[in-house]
Every structure is written in structure tokens, then in C-alpha cells.
Amino acid sequence: MLIGTAKHSYRADEALLTTSPQRLWMAILLIALALAPLALDNYWLYLACLVSINVASATGLNILTGFTGLVSIGQAAFMAVGAYTVAVLEARTGLPFLVNLVVGGAVAACVGLVVGLPSLRVKGLYLAIATIAASFILHFVFVNWQSVTNGNSGINVTPASLFGVELTDYVHLYYVFVPITALMVLGAANLFRTRIGRAFIAIRDRDISAEVLGISLLRYKLLSFAVSSFYAGVAGGMWAYFFRVVTPESFPFIYSIFFLAAIIVGGMGTILGGVVGAVFMTLVPELLRFAVEWLTTIFPNAVTALSPIRTIVFGALIIGFLIAEPKGLAEIIQRIRRFFHLWPFRK
């Protein structure tokens, strides 16, 4: 039982992890992440890398939609910008891959600034439509800017290399992607301890009041788009090194819906929500494969018959979790935490 979290300084009050159980669990999580490849086979390592990429991008979208209140359905297009940038840089310049990732993020951020311009006049569904339009324009550019993107055939990406080691095995990619994503999530968490992050939240809660308080909507809305797109760009760059082929069809529109669903299911406006939402959306369809596989021991050829049901179950799980907890999975975790605050004395 934790009877109190008395803080004796502003520094302690602003800390990311305020209680010792939090610090303990975070330490356990970090150790588990570091040691996970020792226990995981290639399949699970692949999924871990994919989760890592999706967490980075979902966290970016959470900054924009969850924390700033600007709805975007163009996250996949920003990822594509990052992926193409990385693919072109890798093929033509031979720059180190970490530099490529940062440049990929920067180029996506610049595109995000432009796409974010309508947010100064419209919001809500109107802004969502504007971001959809932007993603279709970008798709057109990817298909038709042949000299750079190689059109529909796309670009093959040579493996990234770090300290002379080619990053082709999932275990190598895991040890690169997971720290990058962890840094990005840490950065996002810290962002909301600064004036910039608080300005984002103020805009979300009431933009007119925020402006009255001296927050420049022009500056901060565009900054939110830029930061979110940077996250998407870096995630897209990791995606390019992961799958090693980038085509206009690599980032379909439905992928943007995936990220929006991830932050809604996880919990908008919380860092934890973006993370658990991306984990849930990526891993649950895979876990349901095992349910189908288990059923094949009872019903032969169950994979064919039950695959459509797997999709329905996945949808039902999303709806079920949202009915049980509209604030998302992050709130469920918070509720569990609150339960243990008083345990074992709570009725």
C-alpha cells in the first residue's frame, strides 16, 4: 500500500516517475526489453520491431490529436514521406542510417507544416478531410515523381549498417529500433512538462482561451503538426529499413486509420495510451492467430473457415474494451494502479 506521495520540491513534483513503485516497474520494463531477444524467436522479434515502429508513429499522432486536439488522418502519408526520404538518401548519398532517419523525420516535419496550414482555419472533421486530401496528393506525388520515387515499382532499400554490422537480423533491428522508440516516447513525455506541451494542451482544451492567454495558435498548431510528422517520418524511416522496399502502396490510407484507432483504443491524450494502443492493435490480431491455430486441433482446416471470424473478434474486442473503458486501455492500467494504491485495505 502506498499511503502518500508527499513531494518536497518542484523538481520532485515535475518528475516523470513520482513514486517508487513506478520507478521499480519502469526498471523492470527496461530490463525486460533489454533481455527480451534472449527469449524471443524470430517471429516475436519481428513483431517487437513492428510494435516499436507503430508505437513511435502512434505517439506522434497522439501529440497532434490527443494532446493538441487536431484530428489527422494523414499519419501514414507522413510516414511515407520519411520512408521515401530514407530510401532515396540510402540509395544516393550513403549517409549513416541514423542521419537518414533524422533527415527523414525533418522532411516529414516540413511537409507536416504545410499540411497543417488548414488547421489555422478549420478543425474537427473539416481538418480531418484536409489531411485526407493531403495524403492523396502525396500518394499522387509518390506515383508520378518517377525520377525520385521510381513510380509504382518503388525503391529497394539496402540494409542499414551500424559500426560495420549490417542490420538484417531482427535481433539487430530490435536493439536499434526499441531504443530509438524509447527515446521518442521519453521525448514526448518530457514535451508536456514544457511550455510548448502545455500550450498544445491549452489549445486542445479551448483554443480561443489559449490565444487570450498569449499562446500563438499559428506557431503552436504548426509546431504540433511538425513534431507529429517528425515522429511519423522517423517511424517511416525505420519502416523502410525494416521492410526494405518502399512503394506508393506501402502506406495505404487504412494505415492512417490504424494509428487513429490505436490512440483511441489506447487512450488519447496520454503517453501511455499511444504506446498500449499501438501494442494492442499490432499484437492482438497476431495473438488471435494462435486461437485459430488451437482450434485447428479440434476442427481441421479451421484457418480458412475461422479467419474471417478472427477479424470479427478483433473488431469486437476493440468495441468491448471501449465500452468497458471509454478512456482507453491506459485508463484501465491507471485503475489497476489505483487499486493497488489501497490494496489490501480496499473493500
Partner: peptide, 12 residues
């Protein structure tokens, strides 16, 4: 991405 996941799962 699901195809690659299936490839890795079956290979494991």
C-alpha cells in the same frame, strides 16, 4: 506486414 508476420511465425 501480416504476410511477413505469417512467414516468420511459420518459419519459427
Amino acid at each position: 506486414d501480416a504476410s511477413v508476420a505469417a512467414f516468420n511465425k511459420l518459419n519459427s
